[in-house]
């Protein structure tokens, strides 16, 4: 099941930061990781991937570094920064709260919201 683009737009930065928090990656590797780790539910459109990475870089949440390859070419690896980690913690809390709220609305939390 593919997620609506607008929904993905909000979650994509957090997902990328979460994945990069576990180790640096290059673009293609990252896009594969997002798909794999979300069980094919989340998929960053390739057209979204690089603009997203550059945006996160402009905010100082990730940092891109060129590394030489054996074939003489260079590959750009992205890693999360301290500022990015801080943002990730805050975003994850927000997402959890949002998730709880949505679960309550959808009746998935196993409890009823008391009438106030």
């Amino acid at each position: 099941m593919k997620i609506e683009r607008e929904l993905l737009k909000g979650v994509a930065p957090v997902v990328v930061l979460e994945i990069l928090s576990q180790g640096s990656m290059y673009g293609y590797e990252l896009s594969k990781a997002v798909t794999q780790r979300s069980g094919d539910i989340l998929s960053l459109g390739r057209g979204t991937l690089y603009p997203l990475l550059y945006n996160l870089e402009s905010k100082g949440w990730i940092e891109g570094n060129w590394q030489d390859q054996e074939n003489g070419r260079k590959r750009r690896y992205y890693e999360i920064t301290d500022k990015g980690r801080g943002h990730l913690v805050a975003s994850k809390q927000q997402w959890q709260q949002l998730q709880e709220g949505v679960n309550l609305v959808f009746g998935l939390a196993g409890r009823v919201v008391p009438n106030t």
Partner: peptide, 22 residues
């Protein structure tokens, strides 16, 4: 892949905008 990346003009604009922010 090209289909996934989408319209080259639009992508070029998005990349350009992002790079400017950097």
């Amino acid at each position: 892949l090209i289909n996934e990346f989408g319209d080259s003009h639009q992508l070029a604009q998005l990349i350009r905008r992002s790079k400017k922010r950097c």
